[in-house]
Amino acid sequence: MKVLVTGAAGFIGFSVAKKLLERGDDVVGFDVVNDYYDPALKEARLEVLEQTAQHTQGTFTFIRANLADKAIVDQCFKDHQFDRVIHLAAQAGVRYSLENPLAYVESNLIGFTNIIEACRYNKTPHLTYASTSSVYGANTTMPFSEKHGVNHPVQFYAATKRANELMAHSYSHLFGLPTTGLRFFTVYGPWGRPDMAPFKFTKNIIEGKTIQVYNHGNHSRDFTFISDIVEGVIRTSDQIAQPNPNWDSNNPDPSTSYAPFRIFNIGNNNPVKLIDFINAIEQSTGHSAIKELLPLQPGDVQDTLADSTALQNAVGYKPSVSVEDGVQQFVDWYRDFYKA
């Protein structure tokens, strides 16, 4: 197949694109390669994709541009007939959304609109896009289920991703465009983002620097290893969304529809206390962390836990990498990449 992967220089986008190339798909990557975090890491990921394409039957084409530029997005779809679109580009980060909300409007709202419009006019068979567990916001019922209400986000980032889900449903309804949203839980692993806790903790622990531990490490996250995420994303993209024939408007299921629309959680279904995750990094690095214990930050949620049963039933998704193994793989990659 020919697949468009937006955010191809990003952590998840790169990992998905690499896996698609390895199985022989032709991949068009699209990314602005901004400086939200170290562009050198993004460039290194792109080099790996170029190298991977040279040793597989797949091809890799890269478009360095902003998804908010509608003309370039339209030209991309004109030049290529995509069998699938996997839209992973977004302005991420909970705390940054408190500082620069307009960046989220440009990427998560305008960029998403340009992509879904292009899918509509070019009759793309299936759009799979990234949502986030952050949409559950003030919800405290565990585990988080796609059937729960998500109308009370606690930061602007989550609000924009919830907007994507609603926008996708409108296009599925109006134009019959098959769409699937994936609510990612905390993703970590090799080539991970420097702005995320696993990366920052590992870096500072190895360098003997203090780590900031919010909520005294007592909150939990459903840490999910990147290879498990990639497997779920590709399986979901391969299976085109279909209308739910049993959808009942009197008792509506918010995760499906009479239209070709789906939303899935994609997580590990195994919450880990932050302090235990730090302990795993200490074990893998052989260093003890110097901790600065701080209160929970504005916009953070206390706990996350995914109920991924629906995704497992739909595409056979079943995460297999333990936190101990995943942390060790990340630490090994970090030491090799940064010669640490």
Results as ranks from 00 to 15, higher is better:
residue 282 E to V: 04
residue 22 E to Q: 15
residue 181 G to I: 05
residue 140 T to S: 12
residue 265 N to G: 03
residue 282 E to C: 11
residue 13 G to H: 14
residue 283 Q to C: 07
residue 311 L to K: 07
residue 317 Y to I: 04
residue 250 N to H: 12
residue 43 E to V: 00
residue 116 I to G: 05
residue 205 I to W: 02
residue 127 L to C: 08
residue 44 A to V: 03
residue 245 P to A: 02
residue 16 V to S: 12
residue 9 A to P: 08
residue 162 R to Y: 04
residue 26 D to K: 12
residue 34 N to R: 15
residue 85 V to K: 09
residue 239 Q to N: 11
residue 107 S to T: 11
residue 35 D to E: 14
residue 129 Y to E: 07
residue 108 N to H: 04
residue 338 Y to K: 05
residue 73 V to S: 02
residue 235 R to Q: 11
residue 334 Y to S: 04
residue 111 G to Y: 07
residue 230 V to Q: 03
residue 319 P to M: 13
residue 171 Y to R: 12
residue 283 Q to S: 12
residue 7 G to Q: 13
residue 149 G to H: 14
residue 316 G to R: 09
residue 27 V to K: 08
residue 266 I to V: 09
residue 243 P to Q: 08
residue 224 T to C: 07
residue 253 D to Y: 01
residue 142 M to S: 06
residue 107 S to M: 08
residue 121 Y to N: 14
residue 316 G to F: 08
residue 113 T to P: 00
residue 118 A to R: 06
residue 294 L to M: 15
residue 200 K to I: 12
residue 92 A to I: 02
residue 59 T to F: 04
residue 290 I to C: 10
residue 67 L to N: 00
residue 89 A to P: 02
residue 259 A to E: 14
residue 238 D to I: 01
residue 104 Y to F: 13
residue 230 V to R: 08
residue 196 M to E: 15
residue 268 N to Y: 10
residue 167 M to D: 07
residue 2 K to R: 15
residue 122 N to F: 15
residue 252 P to L: 11
residue 109 L to P: 00
residue 6 T to N: 13
residue 183 R to S: 06
residue 125 P to V: 05
residue 3 V to R: 11
residue 84 R to F: 06
residue 87 H to L: 12
residue 293 L to V: 04
residue 75 Q to Y: 06
residue 49 L to S: 10
residue 212 Q to M: 04
residue 144 F to E: 09
residue 340 A to I: 00
residue 271 P to G: 06
residue 12 I to C: 08
residue 23 R to S: 14
residue 193 R to E: 14
residue 108 N to Y: 05
residue 295 P to G: 10
residue 195 D to F: 02
